[in-house]
Design a binder for these strands. Structure first.
Lengths: 189, 189
DNA sequence: GTCTATACTCAGATAGAC
DNA sequence: GTCTATCTGAGTATAGAC
């Protein structure tokens, strides 16, 4: 049917726009990456782009959502620790994405911001599996038992985020190595 | 002399502008805080404001620099750990400042950004005293000796930053308590 | 040295034609 | 589904008043 074709084209165009947007952001930074420039790179007008994504901010949220979806898909079945460190290692290869994440997370503090709910949902979605993994690690003797699983989750998440902030300014920081050392320190005495 | 009077007035106006700017940012967020609106709140025109601060970004860097200067002044003579936790506790009372910091830190990843050098210098300035304090804490038996002082500094800084990110989205997080727990975990077995 | 008025450029977003 | 045209508001450079 005709609708099928149009639909498939829309999906393909969406992905093309996401690719182009990430490229422009990586090259020029969030602030200087205008909707017009991204539209040019994707081969359509600014208004055409906003037909797919309602606003610049929604477009950028979609990039982060696509990244999360890919990370989840690619690490299916892997252990929590390995997934965690793998994602951090991979992030060191995509500075544009890391900067986009930091920028959007800062803006999303405003409850009215389009990314606010995305970040809340993201943290909530990570919470379940991460908690299970931490409890299992404590039972297996890989993480000391005298700390709460919630605290471990918060601190691992926070430290990874904070190391990314520092790494953005100074790429000589080895985020994964610092986190591995933290996991070592968290082991029982 | 006449110069003295004019100079003193300029300094007072600068501080008035910084106060007004922080207020507007806290109320409306970085993005919606326009130079015109801040200028209105400070009682002068946008161009008048830019006479004191060359650009919106430089104005915001000045706010963070003033905060750092105050924090340093107020905690002179206090121990590293108490200063660290005090600053974190105080930050929970000034969400506008925390958001401004996060936003500027994200933008500052671009080496061309006016805040880039500020953040590099800030980290470097913290490094000396913090390293000394960590080494002393290790010698005193408050921090385990099998980790490098540099790693401890990076991780404490990163965790505090990351917890701030999480706290911006969800104010129920107790940043200071989580950091105290981290300091406890870092103690020798 | 302090500050205003004006104006320029560019941004994101919308309306409506095709 | 995509465009052109246009709106509104941003940052800021300039010229010059006081």
């Amino acid at each position: 049917m005709a609708r099928r074709g149009a639909y498939a084209k829309g999906v393909a165009k969406r992905e093309e726009i996401l690719e182009a947007a990430l490229g422009v952001v990586a090259d020029r930074g969030y602030g200087k990456a205008s909707v017009r420039e991204i539209a040019d790179a994707a081969g359509l007008s600014a208004a055409g782009l906003l037909h797919y994504f309602g606003s610049k901010e929604e477009l950028f949220v979609a990039i982060l959502a696509a990244r999360d979806a890919r990370d989840t898909r690619e690490h299916e079945g892997q252990s929590f620790t390995e997934t965690f460190l793998d994602v951090v290692r991979h992030n060191a290869a995509v500075p544009g994405l890391v900067r986009l994440y930091a920028r959007l997370a800062a803006d999303a503090a405003d409850p009215e911001h389009p990314a606010h709910d995305f970040f809340l949902a993201r943290t909530a979605a990570l919470e379940g599996p991460a908690r299970e993994a931490v409890v299992a690690a404590q039972e297996a003797g890989d993480i000391r038992a005298d700390v709460s699983p919630e605290w471990v989750m918060r601190v691992l998440h926070a430290t990874a985020d904070g190391l990314q902030s520092a790494w953005m300014l100074d790429h000589s920081i080895d985020m994964a190595a610092d986190l591995e050392e933290l996991l070592r320190v968290l082991r029982p005495a």
